[in-house]
Amino acid sequence: MSVLVNKKSKIIVQGLTGGEGTFHTSQMLQYGTNVVGGVTPGKGGTQYSGKGDDTFTRPVPVFNTVADAKAATGCDVSIIFVPAPMAADAILEAISADIAVIICITEGIPVKDMITVRAALDASNSRLIGPNCPGIITPGEAKIGIMPGFIFSPGPIGLVSRSGTLTYEAVKQLSDEGLGQTTCIGIGGDPIIGTRFIDAIKLFNEDPATEAIVMIGEIGGTAEEEAAEYIRDNVKKPVVGFIAGQTAPPGRRMGHAGAIISGGKGTAADKVNTMRACGITVVESPASIGITMKAVLSGKGKTPAAKPSAPSKKPAAKKASAKKK
């Protein structure tokens, strides 16, 4: 089992014939991802097999619009490799074609464009992952993103992260400890994103195959704190966390557009404290994510700090665990 995507997912690539689209589609096909089509306006009706070093394992049909692609292939997932100035439009096109899961890899989309996208998303049935993210992978079934497939392995851990390479680091540590993954979701480093920590945690909580969760956050915003409170009230599965940027100075954007401590808010210390108070096992060092998860799983269950939640919260927790069965 897994969340959001699996081997049955039918995937299209928006921006298929561009440089990034070509390279990563060849990688996804090699992984065995079920890519059923691509969208490049003006190239509809052709078949595309990649180019140069990035020749595809099989040709992929190209469509002019997402709606055309959906009508012809029945696709339910789209991954977007469209340059930032046109990326919001690409997401909106996928939303209007009612694509269930939209993954946007593009970095550098203006905030103003994302405010519009977010509003359209809230009024739709679509889910967006990203932008500015590595994508999503269900190991052994579907790699829909730019992550190196070989470090992932199937297993019981769900992982959600704002960072790309830090995800790879954590996954490598998990795989080295013999802990495979159900699904890994890179939610992206921008201030406005589609799927947030809390949404990903809900999915992992409801997935019977996911036995434990890793959440990797960073400075900026309060999404980690919101998820932590949800976890305290609803999640019985063990959660191991890490927050990057304990040494980051305030007021500076640390690479990601969303990684900034502003007005004294969004510090790593605040996030770590809230997460710990909510029963999450937070590691100090990103080098100990794997061994800590191993230890938590052999001890089973959450750390005792999880328990002292307010009495009024209890009914909610019970309801969630009942729903799980």
């Binding site: 040494t247 640390m254 990103p286």
Partner: peptide
């Protein structure tokens, strides 16, 4: 470092190892 998250994580590691990061560099 490659990647913003790993770069921040590496700065944190440096502090835990007894040093202080001189920069962020992705």
């Amino acid at each position: 470092v490659n990647g913003a998250g790993l770069a921040m994580g590496t700065m944190d590691i440096i502090q835990l190892a007894g040093g202080k990061p001189a920069n962020f560099l992705d």
